[in-house]
Design a protein around this nucleic acid. Structure first.
Lengths: 334, 334
DNA sequence: TCGAAGTTAGTGAACGGTCACTTCGCATGT
DNA sequence: ACATGCGAAGTGACCGTTCACTAACTTCGA
């Protein structure tokens, strides 16, 4: 049947007995075409099984309807959530989002982004990772590039994503419940988020005049967190553990369990990430949930604003929220 | 400085004092160009900050170096892992992978895929969701479309991903350890994976002549799993729980804990997903890890084989593996 | 010394759409 | 009756690259 080459707009036009331009107008749903012709063209398109070549269209019109979403290499659930949010936002503005992974060193990445920007494939780009010099080197006439650096080159959270206001909330409320002596189980410091949580922990303890047993480096390893609790000297006075994520929190709870301590009766524990398994345990783990989708939406909406020539809205509503569950409670009364 | 229009290959050619075709050859790293000219062209490119327009290139050459990875809407960690695997495989063959979300009904999706296929944007497409009639309706001359239906239209695992051989392994080994009476905590049956795990549970119990307390519908809710264990009558004889995922397993462990039962001393529990938090608990949960990346790699390698005109390799090595941890052990000796 | 083959570079068309401009037909106003 | 304006449709150029040919020059063997 239909054999070699894909039908083009001109063949559709020939079959419908109109000019190619009329078909082009029809495809753009230009309403200055008479009903009769619209019908003829529709029939011809169906008959030839015609589908427009988007590459050719993009070449002439410089409009591709596509945005690029640039991620550093590596796998993180958060990035998928952000992507989902980005897609939602882009879709409502009639754009398609594509994911492109950027590997290599920061400078290489900038080069690659500039290539993509000038490739004509995208009308705008959102990068979740930092790109040195990109704003000065990019073509001012080219597609806008929004840098929302949520990750460094190893998919580690930075910036907004690494903010740790919830740590402050945890400590404040636990102090209200009578806790005086805390310990922090920290993640791997190559992660900005681990550093930030530690910083906020130290600051808050200090500001509120509380007591800290210290910061224990756990490197995101549950085993270390468990051992840290097991190693706590008898009578250390620690009643609350601020863990850098849910895995460490669960490791800590595991350590408490092995010592025969009750959580939260003897020890309160907080985590981070809102892992569904941590919510299923007894005790369910108090944690922090991060609204990644809204971060993705926000990045794209900034891009869309720039595309429309508007000033980019710089909303800074909080994206993370503490979720209080069973692993925290009043300090023991002893 | 550099102002309005992007420099083209012809401007580079003019500046370098050669023809545009020579520049084109240079860009393809065609080695039939004298060293002297190569040098002049390189200088001109650098001076003009020229970057090739990939859209124009794609239009003429019909080669875009891009593959599309089609996902149903929805968020799942697994799909990100598969994407990572797909990227690795594609990258090693010099292709870039783009993610496109397919929404709408199955028929709408097929239409959209055909549009994408004939859009000229991609040299091949991999769909992780079923596409009715796509093989009969697609242009035989167009880019190949591989359908690896791991998900249905709601991002629920189907096919290979829903296979549940590990359930068989769990039951067999637990039976070896003296367990005779089992219970299955099932997920939401709209998920093929939940149905498959239940089926394999029932079949295996039957085949080995074991005893089942029954299948309890838990709908992926930890609360239900916990309650199911709490509701187990005293002396039910159940010593092993096969839960459909880690959340249900942890809910079950939570129920056992509330009844004062020891895991695995009184009750063995298995999960599914290898959630890191479930591994951090005491007891660490016996579970199943699925190698999503290899699924992604495999799908792309099938596509690449088709692109090269080879027969697609249909490897069926197992993608999931049981991980035995502390939540399972010998049956109580009473 | 000359022709064949090989190497290096150039010329113009072509890819499949859209843009800018033109043409045609008809209603309208004076 | 004729200029004016507007809507509907057509004409040909153009977007930036690569492809298919062709041209010029070099090398080499007989």
């Amino acid at each position: 049947m239909r054999s070699r080459p894909r039908p083009t707009i001109r063949e559709v036009a020939r079959l419908a007995g109109v000019s190619h331009q009329t078909v082009s107008r029809y495809l753009k749903t230009d309403d200055t075409i008479s009903k009769a012709l619209q019908q003829r063209i529709a029939t011809a398109i169906a008959q030839l099984d015609y589908r427009p070549n988007l590459v050719a269209r993009a070449m002439r019109s410089r409009k591709t309807g596509r945005l690029a979403f640039l991620l550093p290499p590596g796998t993180a659930i958060s990035s998928l959530e952000m992507l989902t949010g980005a897609k939602t936002e882009a879709h409502s503005a009639g754009y398609v989002v594509e994911v492109v992974t950027l590997d290599g060193s920061p400078d290489t990445r900038t080069d690659r982004v500039l290539e993509l920007a000038d490739s004509g494939l995208f009308e705008g780009l959102v990068s979740l990772t930092a790109l040195p010099d990109v704003s000065s080197r990019r073509d001012p006439q080219g597609p806008p590039i929004i840098v929302a650096p949520h990750y460094d080159e190893h998919m580690r959270s930075v910036g907004e994503l690494a903010d740790a206001p919830a740590v402050e909330e945890f400590i404040t409320r636990l102090a209200d419940q009578g806790h005086r002596r805390f310990v922090h189980l920290a993640g791997d410091y190559v992660h900005m988020s681990a550093r930030r949580r530690r910083e906020v922990y130290i600051e808050t303890i200090e500001r509120l005049g509380l007591d800290s047993y210290g910061v224990i480096d756990c490197d995101w390893l549950a085993q270390r967190a468990r051992q840290a609790i097991l190693d706590l000297p008898e009578g250390s006075g620690v009643t609350a553990v601020i863990a850098a994520n849910d895995v460490l929190a669960v490791g800590a709870i595991s350590g408490a369990y092995l010592r025969g301590w009750l959580v939260p009766g003897d020890l309160s524990v907080t985590g981070w990430d809102d892992n569904p398994v941590a919510a299923a345990m007894t005790p369910a783990v108090t944690t922090v949930s991060v609204d990644y989708q809204s971060l993705g939406r926000r990045a794209v909406s900034r891009l869309l604003a720039t595309l429309r020539g508007e000033e980019a809205p710089e909303s800074r509503e909080p994206v993370s929220a503490a979720i209080w569950r069973e692993s925290t409670g009043p300090a023991p009364t002893t």
